[in-house]
Design a protein around this nucleic acid. Structure first.
Length: 404
RNA sequence: GGGUAGAUGGCAGAGUGGUCAAUUGCACCAGACUGUAAAUCUGGCCUCUUCGGAGUUCGGGGGUUCGAAUCCCUCUCUACCCA
């Protein structure tokens, strides 16, 4: 096991806040002395299907704890998902049915496994204890916190000001999350900065239950590909762990330059000094490196190299070439007339445009071209002579047609 | 329980009987420029179209009218105020 100072250095890298650092040091000292690992809690609510890079910020931290020999405790919020976390929200969450939650929980775990060693972690659905929770226990839990304290948090006071509703059950959420900490006897809980309130409730409840309060370790919120909003499903600015290498790479290349440092810090293990020198260089090169790092992590070094090669081939200044790996679309011969097809139909069939009208517009704009010499079609009524393997392009999208 | 104000395209938000497929902003897509970044400019952004138009839209349902997003009835939902 590494020394306390070494561990502290790893733990605090990239972290936003540690509550409290001194207590953490004590816990680590004891752990090193006794050889007993700390219990590191991280909770995730299965509210959707995609785990994205934003989630990986605390997850990566959890992995680092694992690498140092501590125990990761993953709380799957099967019970809390039904309530919905009000943190950082300006409206209430839609509650999910238990079937949805069940399905989501499964897909979440397989995705999380890309970051954390799930097989070595304790996985605890919090429905396990909340389903047995009695009304008397609930009342006792509710008695631990005042309405004033609940309402003073920013999320709620903003919503009160804005006039958006706050439902009573949402107030239950922090208590439930805090109770999870008691159930699993957490030493440290990880979360985004917006989680601080919820994490602190855990401390209170643990103290109340006669346990040593957990350390609250918050990580900065990762901004999404737009560089403005928090990465999330609703904002549509996220990169999913399950996305293909090409998508992850391309999306990373399109992030604003200002995001580079933040992303390097929170999404890679590179040292601060290394990051500083990378960011000082040309942003385009820095982004390629970042994109390669990310793709390597989720798809392996080989895939990353291939994706980078494709990228360079397609976009490197000078000759524009087609990448080696192009997605394919199948067109049955039966749909062709004399071996040809109207360009407009082809574009829609290939999924490059949503409607024929849009396809016409794009053709007029000169966005559509085909074949090895990039013949630009500008006539809305043009037909395309179809041959197997024909490459069609619309803007930055590129597809190979398979005729069968 | 009583009262008031609302529900318009992905979001915000105009429109209050015909000139409304619905101003505008954001987001989004494409073109030019570039580093497929940003910024900027241009075009587009319900569907179909023989490019003349045509068809379905303004919470749901029903009605008035030659004609409704706009008026009436009703249902559903939401916020605010009073209790």
């Amino acid at each position: 096991m590494q020394s306390v100072d070494e561990q502290l250095q790893v733990i605090t890298r990239g972290a936003a806040h540690v509550e409290k650092l001194e207590e953490l040091r004590k816990k680590l000292e004891r752990s090193v002395a006794t050889g007993k690992p700390l219990r590191i809690k991280y909770g995730i609510d299965p509210t959707g299907f995609d785990v994205h890079l934003g989630h990986t910020v605390p997850l990566r931290k959890l992995r680092q704890f694992q690498e140092m020999g501590h125990t990761a405790v993953l709380i799957i919020g099967t019970a809390t998902a039904a309530v919905g976390d009000p943190s950082g929200r300006d409206d209430s969450r839609k509650s999910l049915t238990s079937e949805q939650i069940e399905i989501n929980a499964g897909t979440y775990l397989t995705q999380i496994a890309k970051v954390v060693e799930v097989t070595r972690a304790e996985v605890r659905p919090n429905g396990n204890w909340f389903s047995k929770f009695g009304f008397a226990e609930l009342l006792r839990l509710l008695g631990k916190i005042t309405v004033q304290r609940m309402l003073e948090r920013d999320d709620f006071s903003n919503r009160i000001k804005a006039g958006t509703p706050i439902y009573l059950h949402e107030c239950l959420y922090p208590l439930m999350q805090g109770w999870d900490s008691v159930e699993i006897q957490a030493d440290v809980e990880l979360g985004g900065t917006e989680q601080l309130y919820n994490l602190m409730v855990g401390r209170d409840l643990q103290r109340d239950a006669g346990q040593e309060p957990q350390i609250c370790l918050t990580m900065p919120i990762l901004r999404g590909t737009d560089g403005a909003k928090k990465m999330g499903k609703t904002a549509g600015n996220y990169i999913g762990l399950a996305e293909p290498a090409k998508e992850q790479f391309g999306k990373t290349m399109r992030i604003p330059d200002e995001l580079l440092r933040e992303w390097f810090t929170l999404l890679t293990d590179r040292s601060e000094g290394e990051i500083a020198s990378i960011v000082a260089g040309h942003p385009n090169e820095a982004k390629k490196l970042l994109a390669t790092d990310i793709v390597t992590f989720y798809h392996g070094a080989e895939a990353a190299a291939a994706t980078l090669a494709d990228w360079n081939k397609q976009f490197a200044s000078g000759g524009k070439q087609d990448p080696d790996h192009i997605d394919e679309v199948n067109i049955p011969t039966a749909d062709l007339t004399d071996g040809a097809m109207p360009a407009v139909d082809l574009i829609v069939r290939a999924g490059l445009c949503k409607s024929k009208g849009e396809a016409r517009q794009k053709i007029t704009e000169g966005a559509f071209n085909i074949g090895p010499d990039r013949t630009k079609l500008t006539d809305v009524k043009a037909t395309v002579a179809m041959s197997d393997g024909l490459v069609i392009r619309l803007g930055r999208k590129i597809l190979r047609v398979r005729v069968s």
